[in-house]
């Protein structure tokens, strides 16, 4: 069920080599913002891949969300996500608007001291290691990239929506109407299923996902789950974290703290 969580020295060498290519490409790794430091350790930006280099199978990108830090009523991550990915909220029927990330409020109804306590739960594609959406896809459009990012290849998606049924997190949306305000880096269109891509276009340039960068509380940590030295892996090793619906044994790449 679990993917290897061991550090990989070959990978580190690769990263160093990739770093050498960075200057030539004109990419600048963004410095982590101050708010990101609040996580306790630097929320390091990923290293951009060299041109022509495929996604690295030694890496597994993941997110750690601290539900205690997530402020009630704040929608900054949702706004940043939807701006970055051109997910507009102006379809004729608002119920059809895509949701790449949404916030769920869990109210504790059990009798006792914690009764009435509200937990903030930002929910998006969990980038499972064993994604059910990939299992059910009849065309192979639902796919997991080598570095663990679960995507819809919209060139082969026929819009059947089996994956939406299969996803226990309700993470996917279907595009019901023609669109014309796409971000050139994020093509989206009618008739296809879509969901959080972990901002794959940003990761590949060496940036962090838009939601992580926008969170004023520093509630989100992004990084390589397979790299024992990364902030995210260290945190997961040191504090109790939760996988939502761990019983399904999907091994999600998005983990929660404080649930």
């Amino acid at each position: 069920m679990t993917s290897p969580q061991t550090p990989d020295n070959a990978r580190r060498k690769f990263i160093a080599a990739a770093g050498a290519g960075v200057a030539g490409l004109g990419f600048t790794a963004i410095a982590p913002g101050l708010h990101l430091m609040a996580v306790g350790e630097a929320n390091a930006a990923p290293t951009p891949r060299k041109a022509g280099e495929p996604a690295n199978p030694a890496v597994r990108w993941g997110l750690l969300i601290d539900a205690n830090k997530c402020a009630p009523g704040c929608t900054k991550c949702i706004d940043a996500c939807h701006t970055e990915n051109g997910v507009s909220a102006n379809l004729p029927d608002p119920r059809q608007n895509s949701q790449w990330i949404r916030k769920i409020e869990l109210v504790d109804r059990r009798p006792g001291k914690t009764r009435g306590h509200v937990t903030q739960l930002p929910m998006m594609c969990q980038h499972c290691a064993e994604p059910p959406c990939v299992d059910v896809c009849p065309t192979g459009a639902s796919m997991k990239r080598a570095d663990g990012i679960v995507l819809v290849d919209r060139h082969t998606c026929i819009g059947c929506r089996y994956c939406m049924m299969a996803c226990p997190y309700k993470a996917r949306s279907f595009v019901h109407a023609p669109l014309n305000d796409q971000n050139p880096e994020v093509p989206r269109g009618k008739g296809c299923v879509e969901s959080c891509t972990l901002c794959v276009h940003r990761i590949d340039k060496g940036q962090q996902p838009a939601c992580v960068e926008s969170c004023p509380e520093g509630a989100m940590t992004f990084g390589d789950l397979n790299d024992a030295d990364s902030a995210i892996a260290k945190r997961i090793a040191s504090v109790p974290t939760t996988q939502v619906r761990a019983d399904l044994r999907l091994n999600p790449g998005v983990r929660y703290e404080g649930l």
Partner: peptide, 21 residues
């Protein structure tokens, strides 16, 4: 190219649709 970019994650090659545009 679209399979190389989307499925394999290879970027920065000469052929890109955004490049043509």
């Amino acid at each position: 190219q679209r399979d190389r970019t989307l499925r394999l994650g290879i970027r920065g090659e000469p052929v890109t649709l955004n490049g043509c545009i």
